[in-house]
Nucleic acid binder design. Structure first.
Length: 426
RNA sequence: GGAGAGAUGGCCGAGUGGUCGAAGGCGCUCCCCUGCUAAGGGAGUAUGGGAUCAAAAGUUCCAUCGAGGGUUCGAAUCCCUCUCUCUCCGCCA
């Protein structure tokens, strides 16, 4: 959520900032609502003040044994008007809130301006796509014959966009999770955290999934919970309504969770294989930091995610999302894209974002600034480190041999009891 | 699932219808005293919002005692619903 005070003050600047990301901020509607709000709020508060004063006077008069029946009648009348004004104010306030909750974050000034992913800016590349000397297969062709990946059985259990994994491939998948958690806790200074996979509405508002993106979620209807679409939701919301001391910051969390996405509106996309599933595993990095450091932290956090790909020896590139491709809550985002031989292109495997105070304002997550002695909003960041399913796909496809086996990356062998090669038996 | 108790400021905790945004303590900040240490004395210390103002400061008003509703001239205090915590019983990985 944007700061309403700032919107009042710099309305046009805000509207221009949002226009860069193809969002039309209705300045006229906002000004009109604000004008109404001002009038109504002043009136409401005057009435409340009057009621408070008169009631107080009744108390004093009564203690002196004076007759207060007429005074009470007067306040009673006042209360009727007060009630109407209150109701009108509430309706208006809700209108303004709904409006504000639906406004996305403003892109950071250095975010490249553009309309779609085509305008994203490549920042750097690491590694070189391998020359195979044979036609590389995709991960489905590699693993489905042996039922190491089994989409048919998953469809029987749950439907489309689910997978069953078996044997050494299932183990490799688990090894990836362990490896990522160990790397981030031991080398990058994150604390491992375990969180609920079902979250309430307040949490979903806090990180920005609600009110706009309800259709992306799997909701558990009877008690208003939803399955998390990312660990970002529970992990970031751990600081909701909290006041943090400066010495507690930065908070650095790494968290492995499954993620559940309904993928509504992506029917034609990536229907083959494991690229786009309703359920997948992810290791997430989350940082809660002082505002002054957040852009430096974004670079660090991105490099932490990159380190995973480097140790797995997977070629990738880093892309700065353009204004038009930015997520709702993000001010700046780097995507990491891993090379997939079967698609002959780089595919997103991690997204690292600085949300500045956008989520913090929704969550009322604050810290005590020692310099100003005031409570201020923190900045929040997160990034995948990495999406596990897609990492598995990348390893399979990049490390395949002519015989259709998978070379286990050196970094993972310790997690595989020394196994160097996964051979799929038919 | 059943029965009971509870939720107050950064923390602990008092407050059962009126001047209570809330005693007291802890913590924190500033000052004084003590040549160090230990200790002592004084002052200050919630958050959000509005109006005024070019802005800030200041002034002033409103809201907030788990959340939402209700009763009342007036609610931290009474009533209802919900959420969460604790104790006991049952069930259970």
């Amino acid at each position: 959520m944007l700061d309403i005070k700032r919107i009042r003050k710099d309305l046009m600047v805000i509207a221009e900032g949002l226009a860069k990301r193809e969002f039309k901020f209705d300045t006229e509607l906002f000004q009109q609502l604000e004008e109404e709000r001002k009038v109504l709020q002043v009136k409401l508060e005057e009435l409340q003040n009057e009621r408070n004063l008169k009631s107080k006077a009744i108390g004093i008069a009564k203690s002196k044994g004076e007759d207060v029946t007429t005074a009470m009648k007067v306040v009673n009348q006042l209360n009727e008007e007060l009630k109407l004004t209150e109701q009108a104010f509430e309706v208006l306030q809700k209108k303004i809130n709904d409006f504000l909750y639906s406004v996305p974050n403003i892109p950071h000034e250095f975010v490249p301006v553009g309309k779609s992913e085509k305008d994203n800016l490549e920042i750097r590349r690491w590694g070189k796509p391998k020359e195979f000397g044979f036609q590389p297969k995709d991960h489905v062709d590699l693993a489905e014959p042996s039922a190491s990946l089994d989409f048919n059985t998953a469809a029987k259990l749950s439907g489309a966009r689910f997978v069953v994994m078996r044997g050494e491939l299932a183990r490799l998948h688990r090894a990836l999770i362990q490896f990522m958690l160990d790397l981030h806790t031991q080398e990058h200074g994150y604390q491992e955290i375990y969180v609920p996979y079902l979250v309430n509405e307040a949490s979903l508002y806090g990180t920005g999934q609600l009110p706009k993106f309800a259709e992306d979620l799997f909701q558990v209807s009877h008690n208003k919970l939803a399955l998390i679409s990312t660990a970002e939701i529970p992990v970031t919301n751990t600081v909701r309504d909290e006041i943090l001391e400066a010495k507690q910051l930065p908070l650095k969390y790494v968290c492995h969770t499954p993620c559940f996405r309904s993928e509504a509106g992506s029917y034609g996309k990536d229907t083959r294989g494991m690229i786009r599933q309703h359920q997948f595993e992810k290791v997430e990095l989350v940082q809660i930091v002082e505002p002054a450091h957040s852009y430096q932290v974004l670079e660090e956090l991105t490099s932490h995610a990159e380190k995973v790909l480097q140790l797995l020896e997977l070629p990738y590139r880093v892309v700065a999302l353009c204004t038009g491709d930015l997520g709702f809550s993000a001010a700046k985002t780097y995507d990491l894209e891993v090379w997939l031989p079967s698609q002959n292109c780089y595919r997103e495997i991690s997204s690292c974002s600085n949300f500045e105070d956008f989520q913090a304002r929704r969550m009322q997550a604050r810290w005590r600034n020692q310099a100003t002695k005031k409570l201020e909003l923190v900045h929040t960041l997160n990034g995948s480190g990495l999406a596990v399913g897609r990492t598995l796909v990348a390893i399979m496809e990049n490390n395949q041999t002519k015989e259709g086996s998978i070379v286990v990356p050196r970094a993972l062998q310790a997690y595989m009891n020394g196994l160097e090669l996964i051979k799929f038996s038919k």
